[in-house]
């Protein structure tokens, strides 16, 4: 018989070694997240999956579930903090949803809707981030990078290529391509790489396919992100 913990009043079973978010997802309880992906080692950096365990805040993607834990997640206080984090992510980059080809398929946008984000609230940084269109099949639009490092982990841990890395510190942290020129065309990156399919926003894009899926049939047109627990598990 598996052990259990309580999240927002609901009893959730877990297996030894599972994190809170893993157990909650399996039980159909959605915890907002951006840098977490079930196929990869947790990174714990976006902090969107923060929950309160026995009254103390912790990232649910890194915290292992333990019997008898009392976890708070979907509360007004925690969601307000998640909303503020999401707003910061929006203003740090250049996220123009109206003309973004990932609109409707974007985890950041869907999370903002889920959290009831009505405006960016903070002043925009409007950073200057040129796109990298050098690769024949893939476009990199750094304007939308939220530094989740999923592409870094996928390229390193699954593809064995180390195409991407995070460089710089603090507010100047940014995604780079591991090539002397800094250009994706000068790496051995291909469209078949796992890293080409893990971006939760609109940075790593297959060229010439934007807007091929009509409005109404995009991922989050069909159901809100809180209802796509299975889709996320399969690797959005």
């Amino acid at each position: 018989m598996s052990q259990t913990f309580i999240i927002d009043g609901k009893t959730v079973p877990f297996e030894e070694g599972q994190t809170i978010i893993q157990a909650a997802t399996k039980a159909g309880v959605f915890i907002p997240h951006l840098c977490y992906h079930p196929d990869f080692k947790p990174h714990g950096s976006c902090k969107l999956c923060t929950v309160k365990v026995n009254g103390r805040q912790t990232a649910s993607c890194t915290m292992r579930a333990m019997a008898g834990m009392v976890v708070e997640s979907d509360t007004e206080e925690i969601n307000a903090e998640r909303r503020a984090l999401t707003q910061m992510l929006f203003v740090e980059g250049n996220h123009f949803c109206p003309s973004c080809e990932q609109s409707g398929n974007c985890q950041l946008q869907a999370t903002a809707y889920h959290l009831g984000m009505m405006s960016p609230h903070y002043d925009h940084f409007f950073p200057n981030r040129p796109v990298d269109a050098s690769h024949p099949e893939v476009l990199l639009d750094f304007n939308r990078c939220i530094l989740c490092s999923l592409c870094v982990r996928a390229s390193r841990d699954v593809d064995g290529k180390n195409v991407f890395a995070l460089s710089g510190r603090g507010i100047t942290t940014h995604l780079i391509v591991n090539a002397k020129s800094g250009q994706l065309a000068d790496t051995n990156f291909t469209l078949d790489d796992k890293a080409a399919h893990v971006c939760p926003v609109g940075v790593i894009l297959r060229k010439r396919k934007g807007f091929a899926v009509p409005i109404g049939e995009r991922t989050y047109d069909k159901q809100p992100i809180s209802g796509t627990v299975d889709a996320v598990t399969e690797g959005h």
Binding site: C100, E101, P130, K207, G210, F211
Partner: peptide
Amino acid sequence: QGRPYWEVPVMVQR
């Protein structure tokens, strides 16, 4: 300028 061409029909309509 500097944007991918397939984005343009959706962007310019704004």
